[in-house]
Amino acid sequence: MIRVQSEDFDIGAEIAQFTQGRTDVGGLCLFVGLVRDVVGDAPLEALVLEHYPQMTERELRRIEEEAHRRWPLLDTLIIHRHGRLKPGDRIVLVAVCSAHRQAAFDGCRFLIDWLKTRAPFWKREEAGGQHRWVAACDADLGIAAAWGDAPDDGGEARARLPGGR
């Protein structure tokens, strides 16, 4: 299941609901991303997450389908917040359940790794009275690509424009 929302989420309640009534789950793996308090040397005041609503849902669903295609997963849950967040706030929850732990671990890591390089969210950091858009991290692209069949976001637009402009 996919949920994109501005509100916070309760990890315990989400997990309880996620597995409620199931007796076929042998392992559940979850990842929670939080807002860190420091940007370079300055303390972070806020992190603002912008997104592209219609496309976000579509991409998250696609990533979820890909995880199900690769591993025997019983269910998956992605909750991603948008809007203005403070240090310590939860940003994202990824939960995966399977009959066995290995698929749960792998599926969970895959979902967060692909989500970071594919789902249309953008982070803006506010620190020291200034704001700065977070640049995409090459290391994250490498991590996502390591799962094989790396997600293609179209690449550098300039490289494909006639004349390379």
Partner: peptide
């Protein structure tokens, strides 16, 4: 048609 920078969602970089 949408134009945007490379995406930076998720958490725990």
């Amino acid at each position: 048609v949408a134009f945007f920078p490379p995406v930076t969602g998720g958490g725990g970089r």
